[in-house]
Every structure is written in C-alpha cells, then in structure tokens.
Design a binder for these strands. Structure first.
Length: 558
RNA sequence: AAACCUAUAGUGUAGAGGUAGCACACAAGAUUUUGAUUCUUGGAGUCCGGGUUCAAAUCCUGGUGGGUUUACCA
C-alpha cells in the first residue's frame, strides 16, 4: 500500500488535486477527437492516457467529438474513430458531440453580448488579422468594438438565421487587444458557415470556434481534467477566461493541462501529412500497413496490447521528444511472442533434394505450435524428398560462424531430420539452383533416438515442395529513411520516403496456413511475425510482415 | 524579435533538498531443435555559470540549446 509507484506529471496533478479540494467522485476525463481524419499512434497515446486515467481512478471518460467545423468533418470519420477506440479495448462513458451544445453555447453568447463581453465585428478576416498586431506590438481595436449592444444582438440574429453571408460578420469576445497573448486579443467566437453539418444538417448557419467550444463542453460535461497537447498551452488563458464568464460556484470547474505530443521516428504523425501520403499514392490508403494510423497498425498485425504497452512505457512529459520506432517494435514482438503460433514458410526458396529419401514417400511430423505455451498444442507438417529452404541458409563454403548449411556440413531441419549437404547444382550462369543432401534416417525429431539427440549447430525451417502453399507476402519496412523526416527546415518530408518500404514476393508455406483468416497472426520461424491481410482470397492468402524477429546474425553479417 | 514552455545515459522516462533508478537500444556471456525467446553481466547520464544550504538533478538567478504562439482550423 505504501509502495510508491512512480507517477508521471499528469498523475501528480491529479494526486495533488485529490489532496486539495477534489474528491474521487469529481474525477472525469475525456478524449476529444475532431472527426476529420483517422486516428494515429499519437492519438493512441492520448487515448491510453485518458482512458488509462479513467481505469486507474475508476472515473468516467467521455468520447467527445469536437465537431465545430462542418467544412472538414464527416460521419465516416466518426465511425472509424469509434471502431479504433473499441478495438483498442476502451469503453467510453458517454458518446458526446460538441454540436450537442450548440444551443447552450448560443444562449451564452447572447448573454455575453448583452453584458458587453462580446460584439459583432463586420470587417474582413484580413483586416481583423492586421489589427491583431504581432507578439511584439499591441493590436488595435476594431471600429465595431463598441457598437451598441442592440446592433450586435440584431446582427448576431441575422448571422444565425442565415441572412448574413459567409465572412460578412463574426462574433468576437471583448477582452484585451494589448494582451501579450495573441489569443486574448478579442478572439473570434463564431463565424458564419453555410455548410451542412454531419449531425445538425442545415439547422445552424453559425458555428462556434474551438476555444469557445472546448472549455464550455468540458464544463457542461463536468470534466475535471482536460488534457491536451502543448501547443494549446497559450490557449489556457482564454479557456479560463471563457470559463470565468459562465462558471457557477456550485459546479466543478474543469482545468486544462498540457503534455508534449509524442513523436515516432521514421514516420510522420500529422493528419495533413498523412493525407498527402494517401493522396499522392505513396501508400494505398489510410489503413495501408505502413501508415502509423491505428487502422494501419491493425492491418500490419499490431495488437491492442502492443500499442497500449508501448504508450504506457514511453510515459508522458513536457519536452520535445522523438521516440525510436524500435521501441514500438519491441512491444509487438513481446506481445506476439506470447500469442503467435510458430509455423514454417520459406520466402526465398532454394530446392533441396534428399537423395536417400524414398521417392514418392511422405510423412507427417509433429510440430509444437508455441514452445512457450503448452496450451497452443501441436500440429503436423508434411515432409518429403524435395523441400525448400531459404537461399540464405546455404553456402558452398563458409567459416565456422555460419551455423547453416554448407557442403559437407550438417544442419537440423526443424521438427524433422538432420541433413548433410553433398552437392550444389548450378545453372549455366553459375547460380545455385538446387542442393543435394542426404539425411540421417535415425535422427527424426522427438523420436528419442541417439541420433535425434545429436547436437548440430544450425536449425533451418523448411517446406515440403509437394505440399507447399504459395502465398503472397508483403514485406514492409519503415516509410521514411530519416528518423525525423518533417523537421528539416529546407527539405520537404516527401524527399525522405523510403523507396523500398514494400517488397512483394511469393512465399511457400506449410499447408496448415490455408485455414487462417484476416488478422490472424503467426510467427514464420526464424523470419518474423506475419498477419493475414484482408486482401486474401480463396485462391491466394496474403501475408503482411508485422515485424522481423530480432536478428543478431544480420548485424554480424553487415 | 517578444512572451511562454522545456533541458537527467544514444532514445524515452523516474527521482518533489539526503547513495541518480527503470525500459528500449548497444556490448559480452550462458541456455536453445527459431542466430528468436529466456537468463546473467557490462559500458553509458543530471546543458553551462553563479547563488541559497551541512547537503542541489531538485530551490533562486543569469546564459545557452530546443520548442510553442502571431487561422473566420482543431
């Protein structure tokens, strides 16, 4: 009980509030996406943070769509977002929409006008921007700033009724044009937009701005802690100002706190940039397995646990960061190592003929599905005179560090026999096209015979030629060659696209794989984790490589 | 340029005045019918300068580096 587990700064804030005036029942959080795109790994961190807090403190977490801009938002994204959060395994307390609060927000705004806290400005956006000044120079007040309350009221009504054109007027809060915080220089609260909203249709012709909406939505829902990323820090002053105007003392007053966005190396995490990858055809869509979107990661074979463990392990702070993608990869491997069945598939086949194995004969050998998990059971794999091994697993000559097959040398075929390479057959160009081997007839795996227990250094995976199931395999690599492609001042991130982020090959798999369904994940032994893609059909299974196995040999070799 | 935020091993993150920990990455070794997994071990850090204090990663101050803000987007 007294055991102190380390807290991140967000948890410290909550613990401090709990020691002060908050009770546990006051705690409530929210995840507030704008439905204008797909969720990505950065959102996943935020989701895990907010929903994780909800679990930790047994507090409700609302899913709230920040849908105040009908020009960008669509139902399609609402559905995709809900699907992704559910897939991650989180349950929201309430499904909320900022658009549900349009009437309340409007009523408050009218009140503001009556109290002289807001006015209708009839200038162009360009003029308003000019008058805003710069961080160094104060802004100048709009000529409409002190227009009569009745006039503002009347114009606001016209804006609302659709009698005013887009851009003709805005409603502005009357705060301080000389504030050192640009956001306090009479920020826009409403603009006119004659566009259909995905939920309210054409009921509203005016739409509230983010700053005016977000804090009040938190207040309406009685969210205790509203966590957002650091770029909203300057907005906090305005968040508080708006809240000051509407807050009633018997109600909880939400507080906004900010954390640093978490960046992942070798990718980009911005909706705009991800959209460009889609639009320019660099990837096939938002759920392309190379995309850092949740739907992309899912298709790539990532599990919810892998993503959640990743998010938890990187923590949360307030400084600029770049998390190496190897950390993400570690988390999938760790999770899949426990869950994925081990199978055999050969990606770059080299035919091996076992010359002393009877022609036409075959046998089915027992194989463990997961050595770390007895409950995973066993299966049988067919063995015969002709098999495929990986091209990389054979060399005519090699030093003793090469644990694989070489002429005159022996290796164990996983779950099968020990073989010895006798002869390499080459084509006219000198390429090895086939290897002739002999097998030790007494060395069958699991037979318990003396020969079966012999220690041979190398073990290879293999597939019987006759029984091989041809499969399409998509080998994915990182999308960018640069760790931080979008922080170069003089270069566009598109210049760093990895031309080899996808390699398409045909592999040969053991027949048991014919039964797999999309999103099933297996380990191709000695190669990596692979998941069945939704592009699979009756005729052809498609596998996506989630991640390779750790490979210390590859490092030595390189 | 101004205001604000920020600075702990290569990366990320703990440490709230009292022996600088953890994870990944890296290196070495053991085990291994996956060069995987597992296990053991190792190297590696408080941005710089002042101050307060018996004692500073921690508090103060000045630099320096990085970031954010200057949308009728969120």
């Amino acid at each position: 009980m007294e055991e102190k587990e380390p807290l991140n700064f967000i948890e410290h804030i909550i613990e401090d509030d709990l020691k002060a005036s908050y009770t546990k029942d006051d705690l409530q959080f929210r995840f507030p996406p704008e439905p204008n795109g797909y969720l990505h790994i950065g959102h996943a961190s935020s989701i895990c943070l907010n929903f994780g807090l909800g679990l930790r403190y047994n507090a409700p977490v609302n899913l709230r769509f920040d849908d105040t801009n009908p020009a960008k938002e669509e139902q399609e994204f609402v559905d995709a977002i809900k699907k992704d959060i559910t897939w991650l395994g989180y349950k929201w307390a309430n499904e909320c929409y900022a658009s549900d609060y349009f009437q309340q927000l409007y009523d408050w705004a009218v009140q503001f006008i009556k109290e002289g806290k807001a006015y209708v400005d009839s200038q162009t956006s360009i003029l308003i921007a000019e008058q805003k000044g710069t961080p160094n120079e104060p802004g100048v007040e709009s000529p409409f700033r002190n227009r009569p309350v009745e006039e503002s009221l009347q114009l606001f009504e016209e804006m609302k009724n659709g009698d005013a054109g887009e851009g003709s007027h805005v409603l502005r809060a009357k705060i301080d044009m000389t504030s050192s915080n640009m956001l306090m220089r009479d920020p826009v609260m409403y603009r006119v937009l004659h566009k259909a909203h995905h939920r309210t249709g054409t009921d509203w012709k005016i739409f509230p701005m983010y700053d005016w909406t977000h804090g009040e939505s938190d207040y309406i829902e009685q969210v205790s802690h509203s966590f957002c990323t650091l770029e909203f820090l300057p907005h906090r002053e305005l968040y508080d100002w708006f809240l000051d105007q509407v807050h009633e003392s018997d109600k909880l007053r939400p507080k906004q706190r900010e954390f640093a966005r978490r960046n992942l190396s070798h990718t980009v995490v911005s909706k705009r940039k991800l959209a460009r990858l889609v639009e320019e055809g660099v990837v096939t869509g938002w759920d392309d397995p190379r995309m850092p979107t949740i739907s992309g990661l899912r298709r790539r074979g990532y599990t919810p646990d892998a993503i959640k463990n990743f998010a938890d392990s990187i923590g949360v702070g307030k400084r600029e960061n770049l998390i190496d993608v190897s950390h993400l990869e570690y988390n999938v491997r760790e999770d899949l190592n426990k869950k994925a069945d081990r199978v055999m598939a050969v990606l770059n086949p080299l035919k091996v003929v076992i010359t002393n194995y009877p022609e036409g004969e075959e046998e089915w050998l027992e194989a463990e599905n997961n050595p770390g998990d007895e409950a995973a059971g066993n299966r049988e794999v067919p063995f015969s005179r002709e098999i495929y091994i990986e091209q990389d697993d054979f060399k005519e000559e090699a030093n003793r560090k090469f644990f694989r097959l070489k002429l005159g040398g022996e290796v164990r075929l996983k779950n099968a026999y020990i073989i010895k390479a006798e002869k390499a057959i080459k084509d006219d160009a000198g390429n090895i096209v086939e290897v002739h081997c002999t097998y030790d007839t007494d060395s069958k795996s699991g037979s318990g015979s003396e020969a079966s227990l012999r220690k041979v250094k190398g073990t290879l995976h293999w597939v019987s030629v006759k029984h091989a199931l041809p499969v399409e395999v998509r080998l994915y690599d990182r999308l960018f060659t640069e760790a931080s492609p979008d922080t170069h001042k003089d270069k566009d991130f598109m210049e760093f696209i990895n031309p080899n982020s996808l390699e398409l090959i045909t592999g040969y798999a053991e027949p048991s794989l014919a039964n797999l369904k999309p999103e099933d994940t297996v380990q191709f032994q000695r190669l990596g984790y692979f998941t069945v893609d939704k592009d699979s059909s009756e005729e052809k299974i498609v596998f996506n490589r989630t991640v390779t196995l750790r490979d210390s040999w590859a490092k030595l070799d390189a």
